[in-house]
Design a protein around this nucleic acid. Structure first.
Lengths: 187, 187
DNA sequence: GCGGCAACTGAAACTGTTTTCAGGATAGGC
DNA sequence: GCCTATCCTGAAAACAGTTTCAGTTGCCGC
């Protein structure tokens, strides 16, 4: 198995999804971006559906990796703010990741298998946020419910992500909104 | 012009989008749902792209209509809660409308024309929410910024809508989360 | 009654895209 | 050196879906 080709192909898939959405996902475009032939895509992944599925698994894995990483600033509040705000950034790969994830969530409305994957990845992220909220609540003597607060914060970030990706907000405005929400919650 | 046929076709489009997404938008499916021929779709709307565009305009208009309607409960807080929670409901047409709107927002990431339409409709909704927040703030002597609060609340509802549509939350859980957020903001 | 027009039909022709597959290149075991 | 397995190519064949258009029906004005 050539892992080098598979990785290049999966990365090319994520880039194609980020550029054209799942609607515009073309074997020819993926092959071009990966520097391989269309036949190689079929050789490694079977058909278009198999390739798309592998690509979405890849997007989900990367989302879960990001969700598990809690940044290293000193206080729980600072770590929480950093984690939530990391969804919005100027780097092309942050935007590509967010766009691909957004496409996966939209697809999950119609595809139960994708819905399961999205729910799992989202639960991991929300769990991380909940732990940080619980620490921040202890640090500050607040009476917030960490689970309910984690749901509010993660849903808010998903909503803001949609605004950012469609150009209604800049990354800075989205980050400022997250900060305002955290201040409003006393975190 | 046969408005009856056009309306049936546009409603059939929204149903098809709600069932299969924009990816699975088929002329044959729309024609079946509307009880007309494929040729009539071409006669009225030109081609698939023209039909899809008209359908998305229709979805946007209906979203704007819903956004402008502020419900009639007595207090601004109650009206605000009712407006935000109306995004989640058991009626099939509420879910169909939310699903179609979710598809439109996903498409808007890639299509500037759709992004403009989504931004306009979202701004209308956010303006209505901001007015209600301003009234509630006056009623309660709070120091919340109505504009910032309206952004937080509408983005939260969009995030929760995604959770509801993918089965991660029930409509009741989403509504309870909206209520918790309003309580947390003192509204 | 006839002609013109709008609304409409549905399948052949067409298009975009995927799938298939004959064949090449390379590496490694014997 | 030969054989086998793996990785890979790219275009013809196949397929899904859209577009086109010849034709039908109904309505209305003259």
């Amino acid at each position: 198995m050539s892992n080098d080709a598979r990785e290049r192909i999966l990365t090319a898939c994520e880039q194609t999804i980020a550029r054209s959405g799942i609607r515009g996902f073309r074997m020819h475009d993926v092959a071009s971006a990966a520097g391989v032939s269309i036949g190689l895509l079929a050789y490694h992944f079977g058909d278009r559906n198999g390739l798309l599925q592998a690509a979405l698994d890849h997007v989900t894995e990367r989302a879960e990796d990001r969700a598990r990483r809690s940044p290293e600033p000193a206080t729980a509040s600072a770590r929480l703010s950093a984690l939530l705000s990391s969804e919005f950034g100027a780097e092309p790969e942050v935007r590509a990741g967010s766009t691909a994830w957004n496409e996966l969530r939209a697809l999950a409305v119609f595809e139960p298998a994708q819905a399961v994957a999205v729910a799992r990845s989202t639960a991991t992220w929300q769990q991380t946020v909940q732990q940080l909220v619980a620490e921040a609540v202890r640090d500050r003597g607040s009476d917030l419910d960490p689970a309910a607060t984690a749901l509010i914060l993660t849903a808010l970030v998903e909503g803001l992500s949609g605004r950012w990706l469609t150009g209604q907000l800049t990354a800075e405005e989205a980050q400022e909104c997250v900060s305002a929400a955290l201040r409003g919650l006393g975190l």
